[in-house]
């Protein structure tokens, strides 16, 4: 219970800070909407093109918007050396990881829900018949991305040019989750949903289990020194 209480405290602190500053959400939303708008003019948004390019475009927007938000994840911890204060508390350091990861997940999902709505609007893509699958895939894909992104944001926090370092480290490692999310999104755009859907959903679940467990075990080494 103590562990969960501490995770909850870190999550509450990040959400309250974001509510006051709106740094991560604003940058993710503006970037995401601009990209959707540019793709709208670059591609003819008929249903065949949406089926062909839509999943890739959508997840590319999610991922790059997510990186912008992820770069902010540890920015508040750098002000006044607050991360040191967290490390001094009698907290299992994996609780710090879990709290920050959940905060990133919440911010990304909020931004993605607006981006997804605009994507559906601009690309004539009806969400209604597939919304259940779409929500499942978005949550699984974002969870995988946030789990890897949070630990790498902590790694890159103290490097020179940390804003550039994060995507360089993150994109190769998060590639499997991006592929899984794009393929499963493509599978639900066909009617009826493609047979590969179950495989890609299972793939995302396995990826998430591995990439949430590993950072929980490794976060101590990242914070130490």
């Amino acid at each position: 219970m103590n562990f969960l209480n501490q995770v909850g405290a870190i999550l509450w602190k990040d959400i309250l800070t974001e509510y006051r500053t709106k740094d991560a959400l604003t940058s993710m939303l503006i970037f995401g909407l601009l990209v959707i708008l540019m793709f709208h003019f670059a591609f003819e948004p008929d249903s065949r093109e949406t089926e062909k390019f839509g999943p890739g475009l959508l997840w590319m927007t999610f991922i790059f918007a997510g990186i912008l938000g992820m770069n902010r994840a540890f920015a508040t911890e750098r002000e006044n050396d607050s991360l040191q204060g967290l490390m001094l508390a009698p907290v299992d350091w994996s609780a710090i990881y879990l709290g920050k990861m959940l905060a990133n997940l919440v911010f990304m999902l909020l931004a993605e829900s607006v981006i997804l709505f605009c994507f559906a609007l601009f690309f004539n893509f009806s969400l209604m018949p597939r919304w259940g699958w779409m929500v499942t895939i978005t949550v699984l894909g974002t969870l995988g991305f946030a789990s890897v992104g949070t630990i790498l944001a902590a790694v890159s926090m103290n490097t020179r040019m940390s804003d550039v370092m994060l995507p360089i480290l993150l994109l190769p490692i998060a590639l499997p989750v991006v592929i899984g999310a794009v393929e499963s999104t493509a599978a639900i755009l066909t009617d009826p949903p493609g047979e590969s859907l179950t495989f890609w959903i299972k793939f995302l679940v396995v990826f998430n289990v591995i990439f949430i467990t590993l950072p929980l075990l490794l976060f101590d080494f990242v914070l130490e020194e």
Binding site: K13, L16, N80, D81, S82, Q84, G85
Partner: peptide
């Protein structure tokens, strides 16, 4: 207690 306060400015 250090020179840095370890406090969150927006709280």
């Amino acid at each position: 207690v250090a020179h840095s306060s370890y406090l969150y400015r927006h709280l």
